[in-house]
Design a binder for these strands. Structure first.
Lengths: 163, 163
DNA sequence: TCAACATAGATGCAATTGCATTATACTACG
DNA sequence: CGTAGTATAATGCAATTGCATCTATGTTGA
């Protein structure tokens, strides 16, 4: 991708650049993970959410849904697969009989620990080798503004289509 | 998304921010398109590539593959669907009997023309209302560096896993 | 208290994607 | 030339996703 190829309207150019960079990076990092024989990138995110946000507490599926921006029916099935693989566990939820609490297993913790160095190296290679720490911070600052604002907007009116 | 939620390592934070922003924006803009009754976002990209890069020439499927970062087998089937819908056409390729040339139809041009204002407004709403033109340009400059460099790397060695 | 409505999660079915492989045509080199 | 190797595109089949709907439980208010 070169600057010259982007649309002249700076906002539209930003849209194209974000989408392209996002897709390209995800594809590259996911490919490294797969080459190492790991399950999908997504599984890492779930394991990480469960591990850090649940010292003993666990997470409700809808919290995963919101945190990772996965559709509800896909959370349901992703959790199925990860339970079947033995990386996480469903437990009944004491405060709400409709719900459940998801907990990472030892096997899940072990997998996450094994995955991280690979993904870390991949991220460093694909991003870190081309941006300084300051560049990276500047990039974050800009991106955070876009996403933070968008969230607020969408959470206000009615909230049925979240993705 | 807030800066405080990002990992402390600035490179990893950039990775998270790019992925989150990319997914979030795509979901938001795609939702607007769907609400307007349009086919998937992806179709717009194909129509646009064909329209601008083919005054009379058309594009080879593998050019779409590289340009839009879609896997070869998915290009093949995406083209099927869009042909069936009448928005594009396959034509035999004169210089290479294995291949074909894709061309946008009048119906396709009309669809793209109808889609653009909707997507443009959506992009403005989700990005433009939160970034100045200069912010947007700065963002592009940073993202382009990441992606441009990554491309070069991956095109060098052997090139089997592209997206 | 109970009816009306909202929320958590699962699921049937169709559409799409990923993976592996195939068919066909081009290219290069002995 | 002829053959080994490579590039273009398609496809069978399994896995995943999207959409619509469903069940069960929680919440609210007359």
């Amino acid at each position: 991708m070169r600057v010259e190829d982007l649309p002249t309207d700076p906002i539209v150019a930003a849209w194209v650049a974000i989408v392209r960079a996002g897709n390209g990076l995800i594809a590259a990092v996911a490919a490294d993970g797969k080459a190492a024989g790991f399950p999908p990138l997504e599984w890492y995110d779930v394991l990480w959410e469960l591990e850090r946000r649940s010292p003993k507490r666990g997470l409700r599926p809808y919290e995963l849904e919101h945190g990772l921006l996965i559709a509800q029916y896909n959370v349901s099935r992703l959790v199925d697969r990860m339970c079947r693989a033995g990386y996480i566990e469903r437990r009944p939820c004491e405060s709400d009989a409709r719900g459940q609490v998801l907990v990472i297993t030892d096997k899940g913790r072990a997998l996450r620990k094994k995955m991280w160095p690979v993904y870390f190296a991949s991220i460093q290679r694909h991003i870190g080798s081309h941006l300084s720490a300051d560049d990276a911070r500047a990039l974050c600052a800009l991106l955070v503004r876009v996403v933070a604002c968008r969230d607020q907007e969408e959470r206000r009116p009615d909230e049925q289509k979240r993705r």
